[in-house]
Design a protein around this nucleic acid. Structure first.
Length: 367
DNA sequence: AATACGGGGAA
DNA sequence: TTCCCAGTATT
């Protein structure tokens, strides 16, 4: 092994012992905590995850507790965290651990890798962090740190690059220190070797960092840009209940799979692209909304514009125009719809966009 | 190999 | 605004 590599592993480990953050999932050694935290941390910042992790572990302290919980409760605990299939996959994994491994996360790479929602990174993270096994755990941090340190010009957006860097990372793990080393390299990426302006002068391995020595620390890593989100115009119906449903809004549950699976939303329609370019007059928009909802067995009458709202997902940009609608007190409500009041909100999981709309509506009612 | 899949924080 | 974050599943 080259001196540049031994130096990296030695100095990084030394640095980590002094700079390790005190995080909830590091307070005690528990493979389930490692698993839950790693799933939550996928594409999600540490500061965002911390409160979710605390609540989640309090509510579901063991794999068996998670396995036995109602699915809606798990989804509600995930509300606002995003990538909601993670919640369902995690619970599916917990059920498998309960059934096949007596509720204990197995110290077995193949078994862990086969759990739902656990890919190459998370497999390596669980095996190394929880069981101190010498497996690489290559995430965005690790690709950035190693791209800079070894001055790799491969496009980290390409799957083949992750595989390449996994081999490099595996060779760097000091015998018997996989857990600390893998956390150390990610910690360095999060605290020092940051994406925009890396703090090279604070870096424990700057002396032999090829990227920095070449003056390329801000050029690396190479990453092709993602394409911009596709714009979509949507018309939504804010349907106020009357009689026994006074003070409540009619909401519906999204399908089992796809975007925001099984979460609750305001009934709405996608406006065909041709008509959405210039937008429609309110009268025509309301007529389109009324007709589309009628097709679904919902007889409502759009009355006036309530508000506009926008939301950007990774790949779609929603521009939503919300119309206040009236509905007859004895009107039929199709399967999957429910009247939800301010006191019922804890029973249902909503995507961020509809949390904002509900806040706007119920906030207005209080005043 | 490309695309679907959320949301928020930092610069 | 832009980037991108302790990625995975599906196609």
């Amino acid at each position: 092994m080259e001196e540049q590599q031994r130096y990296f592993s030695r100095e990084l480990l030394r640095w980590y012992l002094d700079n390790r953050r005190d995080l909830p999932w590091r307070r005690q050694h528990n493979a389930y905590y490692t698993w839950v935290s790693e799933i939550m941390l996928q594409q999600t910042r540490v500061s965002t995850v911390i409160p979710y992790f605390e609540r989640f572990i309090t509510k579901f302290p063991t794999p068996t507790a998670l396995a036995d919980a109602p699915e809606e409760e798990v989804l509600k605990a995930w509300e606002g965290l995003g990538y909601y299939s993670r919640a369902r996959n995690l619970q599916a994994g917990a059920r498998e651990v309960k059934e096949k491994y007596a509720g204990v996360v197995p110290n077995d790479k193949a078994a862990v890798a086969s759990l739902k929602g656990v890919g190459p990174y998370t497999t390596g993270a669980i095996m190394s962090i929880a069981f101190n096994r010498s497996e690489p755990a290559v995430d965005g941090n690790v690709m950035r740190v190693l791209s800079r340190y070894f001055r790799l010009h491969d496009d980290i957006a390409k799957p083949a690059t992750r595989v390449h860097i996994e081999h490099i990372a595996r060779d760097l793990i000091p015998d018997g220190h996989a857990s600390d080393f893998n956390q150390a390299i990610m910690e360095l990426g999060a605290l020092v070797c940051t994406p925009k302006s890396p703090a090279c002068l604070l870096c424990p391995v700057m002396e032999h960092c090829a990227g920095r020595l070449a003056g390329e620390e801000t050029l690396l890593p190479i990453k092709t840009k993602a394409k911009p989100p596709k714009p979509e115009l949507r018309y939504a119906a804010l349907i106020e209940g009357t009689g026994v449903n006074k003070g409540k809004l009619l909401m519906r549950q999204r399908p089992e799979s796809g975007l925001l699976a099984r979460m609750w939303e305001m009934p709405h329609i996608l406006v065909p692209k041709q008509m959405s370019v210039a937008g429609l007059p309110d009268a025509e928009a309301q007529d389109m909304l009324r007709g589309a909802l009628h097709q679904e067995g919902l007889a409502v009458l759009p009355m006036e514009r309530f508000m506009d709202a926008e939301h950007t997902f990774s790949h779609i940009h929603w521009q939503m125009r919300v119309f206040r609608c009236s509905i007859a007190e004895d009107a039929a409500v199709p399967e999957g719809y429910a009247f939800i009041g301010p006191n019922d909100r804890e029973e249902y999981a909503f995507p961020n966009l509809f949390v904002r709309l509900l806040d706007a509506y119920f906030g207005e009612q209080e005043v």
